[in-house]
Structures are given as structure tokens and as C-alpha cells.
Amino acid sequence: MTTGLYELLFKGLWVTLQLTVFSAVLAALIAFAAGLARLSRFWIVRFVSGVYVEFFRGTSALVLMFWLFFALPLLGWQLAALWAGTLALGLSYGAYGSEVVRGAIRAVPAAQREAALALSFTPWQRMWLVILPQAVPEMVPPFCNLLIELLKGTALASVLGIGELAFGAQLVRLATGQSAQVYGIILVMYFVVAFLITRGMRLLERRAKASVGRVPQRDRTTAKRVPPGAVGPGVGTIGGGAR
């Protein structure tokens, strides 16, 4: 592969990152709006947001992308490919994210809400000053997973001809025929970005938890109690011979 072709891949990576950031911002906005709407006091708000969430969780992101790009123009709107991709990813992952928001808010103990009520906070203040600050740190790990799913989802945009990483790889494959090398390289690129996202989000989680006065668990997996016999040659394994 020549340097020119590498350049093509890095250009693709840049578009992938842009696409990820744009759709993540859109998805986050939608997630909070829809997540809060589903907890609304008014049934119509709950109903409408519920329909939105179930619909976009139910459909396929790729089909949605096609629809926004190919079908919407015939109904009168023509979207640029990049915006069709961003909109499709934002709408899909926003629907998933709204479930995270809703779950985290509902996980805040009812006593907190009652205490805020007893202090005569307005509903808006209750949410903004008491509930959300406690709920947001809980949202970080699932949001991290969703962000990585979103990053992987950006590859779908290649079918619209958006020049992101997977599309760049296709061009390079056609130019060189070295499919193993090209796809190997971009898989590693995706993996590195996902790794950096995970690391960044872990930092964010720690800071978010510290801000509400909680000691972050160092590592959820090591803190977990492992049943004897489940792992390794530790105590209690079966058939492990003399001990």
C-alpha cells in the first residue's frame, strides 16, 4: 500500500470520528429529552415518547439510514448523505439512550424525591438539583457501551457513500486487492478508538462519582465475588486432585 492509500484511510478515520461525535451529541440530546418525557406527569407526553422509543428501538438502523436517504427525498426532503447518516444514528441510539436515562432516574431512591419535596423544591429544581446529579454517574457506564455501539454503527454510513473508514477501506481494496491487509488495518483502527472511548469514559465515571461524594469502585469485575470452583485452581474446585 502506498502512502496515498494510507492517507485515504486516515481521511476515512477522520470522517468516522466526526460522524461519531455529531450523532453522539444528537443521540444524547434525544436520550435526555425522551427519557425525561417518558417520566412525565402527562400521559400524552409519556405516550408519544414511548411510541418514538419503541419504534426506533424496533427498527434497523441501516434500514432507517436508507429510508432517510432514499425515501425521504421522494417525500420532498433531500438530505445530504452525512446528515442522513447522523440523523439515523442519532435517532436510533437516542432511543436506546433514553432507556438508560429513564432507568437511572428511576433508580434514584424515592426517599430523595420525598426529601426534595419536603424542602419545597419545584419539580424542575427536584430534577435538576437532586435527582439528575445522582442519576448521571449511573448513566456513564451504559452510555459508554452505547457510544461504542454507535462508533460501530458509523460503518453503516458507508453504504450511503459517505467517505468514512469502511468506505475508504472499500476504495483501497478496489485499488490494491489486498483485502486482508486493508480490513485488518481498519478493524484495528476501530478497536483503538473504542479502547480510547472506554478509557475516557472510565475517567469520566470516576469524576462523576466523586462529584456526588461516592467512592468509585475500582473495578467492577474484580470486586465481584467469584464462586469457588467457578474459576481456576482455587479452593473448592472439583476433581483437582490432592490438596
Binding site: I148, L151, K152, G153, T154, A155, L156, S158, L165, A166, A169, Q170, S179, A180, Y183, G184, I186, L187, Y190, F191, A194, F195
Partner: peptide, 11 residues
Amino acid sequence: RNTPLLVQLFF
């Protein structure tokens, strides 16, 4: 798990 299914399919 951390790389796109679409690219894996191409691969």
C-alpha cells in the same frame, strides 16, 4: 465486540 459487524462481514 469492539469492531463493526459490517467491516467484519467485508473481511
